[in-house]
Write a protein that binds this DNA or RNA. Structure first.
Lengths: 221, 221
DNA sequence: TCAAAAGTGTTCGATCTACACCCATGG
DNA sequence: CCATGGGTGTAGATCGAACACTTTTGA
C-alpha cells in the first residue's frame, strides 16, 4: 500500500531575511518535531488543489504563487508506512498572513532559511530543493514581488533578491535593470517617517507583465 | 484508492534532431495509442529506482542521466482510476540503445520533439514539461554530452544545443565559450573520410567537471 | 582547383563594476 | 547642520554578437 501526501514550503520575507513557515507536529510519528505543513492526499482532489487547501487552512490566503517542486519517494522517508509526498512551495506576503483557529502561535514558527531546526522526515531536504528552485525561478520570472507588500521600494525589492539568492547585488545595476524593464508602476507614494530621503514606492502589475511578455520581453535579473 | 505510476521521457539525438522514445500501448486503456514508457509503482522500490528499471528494461542501459520532472496529479488524467504519475526524463546516446526482447520494433518509435503524434493520457504535456526542464538544465549543467557518442566534435555539441534550445547559436562564440571552460579533453582523434577539414574529437570527463566545480567553476552556456 | 565544413582574429556595442556624488528627510 | 539611506552620472573593464577570414580534407 502506497500513501500520498502533499507538503508546502511557505516562504515569507521579514527583517531582510527569507523565512519558512513550520509547524510543530501534533501526532505520531515524530510528534513534537517541527515539520512542513501538509496533509495526506484525498483521492477526490488534485494535488495542486490539495496544496492550495493546505495553504488556505493555515494562512487564510488564496490566489497565492504556488509551484510544485517534485515528488519525494525514498522507501524509508516515513516510518512504518510507504508515503510518497509531493511538495509545493508558496510565496506569501508575510503581513497578510493570519493563522487560522486551531493553529496556535506556539505551534507555528517562521524560521530563517539558513538556520533551520531539526525537522521531521526528509523535510529539510525538501526545503533545500524548494530554495534551489526558487533561486532559479526568481531570476527568470517576476515572482519576487509576491513576498513584498503591494507598495515597495526598489531597495525592498533588492533585499528580497539578496535574501533569496544569498548574494549581494550592486545597487546601481539592480536599479538600472529594474527600471529599464518598465515593469513597475510608480504609485506616487513615498516612504513616511524615515530619517532620510524617502524612497519612492512601486507596485507590480501582472497585466503589464503579460503584455510585455507578448511582445517578446523576457524577465531576467 | 490512489495509484502511483512512473513514466520516463527518454531523449535521444539523431540527424541533428532531438527525439523522444515512445511505445505503442498494448493494453487498455487507450490501447494502440503511443505513450511514454512507464509502469505502476511497486511499494517496495523507490520512485527513482522504478524509473531506472523502466529504462533498463527498455534500452538495456544503466548509469544514465535521469532527473525527475514532477508529479502529474489531475483527477481525470487517467480514465476510471485515480493515477498520479511521477515523471522522469533521461538522456541517452542513441547508438548505445538496444531494445530488449519483448519490445518489437513496430511498438517503439523515436519521435521528433516538434512533431509528436497523438499521445495517451497527458503524456504530451509531460513531454513538454520535460523539454522545458531540459532547456534550463542544459544551460547550467554539462549534461548535453550524454546525448552524444563518447568522442564528438564541437560542431556535434553545438547541434545538440541548438536542437534542445530550438535556436541557432553563433559558431565563434559557442566555441570560445566551450574552450575557455577547459572542460573537454582533446582525444587526439579526428573525423575520418569527410570531404572537408576533419574536426578534432573531444570527450567529456565527469571528474574534471567535479574538480572545476570545487574551485567555484559554474557551467554556463 | 573547387566545395564544404573546421577553426581563428578582430571589431563593435552592450552590459557589469566601481566609485563618486547629489538629494531629501528627521533629529 | 549632521547622519542616513535614496537615487544618479560616468569611466573603464568585461563579455557577447557579428563578420570576415584562413585551413584542411575528398573529390
Amino acid at each position: 500500500m502506497i500513501y500520498n501526501s502533499v507538503d508546502c514550503v511557505i516562504f515569507g520575507f521579514k527583517n531582510e531575511k527569507l523565512k519558512v513557515l513550520l509547524i510543530k507536529r501534533n501526532n505520531e510519528p515524530q510528534k513534537g518535531l517541527m515539520a512542513l505543513p501538509g496533509d495526506f492526499l484525498d483521492s477526490s482532489i488534485s494535488i495542486y488543489d490539495s496544496a492550495k487547501n493546505t495553504l488556505k487552512e493555515l494562512t487564510n490566503l488564496e490566489n497565492i504563487y504556488l509551484e510544485q517542486i517534485r515528488a519525494f519517494g525514498e522507501i524509508d522517508r516515513y516510518p512504518d508506512k510507504r508515503v510518497i509526498t509531493i511538495s509545493y512551495y508558496a510565496l506569501i506576503n508575510i503581513e497578510h498572513y493570519s493563522p487560522q483557529p486551531g493553529y496556535t502561535v506556539e505551534k507555528l514558527e517562521w524560521c530563517d532559511i539558513d538556520s533551520l531546526p531539526n525537522l521531521a522526515f526528509d523535510h529539510k531536504e525538501i526545503i533545500k530543493s524548494a530554495h534551489k528552485r526558487l533561486k532559479i525561478r526568481v531570476g527568470n520570472e517576476p515572482i519576487g514581488f509576491n513576498l513584498l507588500p503591494e507598495c515597495f521600494s526598489l531597495t525592498n525589492l533588492q533585499k528580497v533578491y539578496e535574501a533569496i539568492l544569498q548574494i549581494e547585488l550592486n545597487k546601481r545595476n539592480f536599479r538600472t535593470k529594474i527600471n529599464q524593464m518598465k515593469l513597475l508602476i510608480d504609485t506616487g507614494k513615498k516612504q513616511e517617517n524615515v530619517a532620510h530621503k524617502p524612497a519612492k514606492l512601486y507596485r507590480f502589475d501582472e497585466k503589464i507583465y503579460q503584455k510585455l511578455k507578448e511582445n517578446g520581453f523576457y524577465f531576467n535579473i
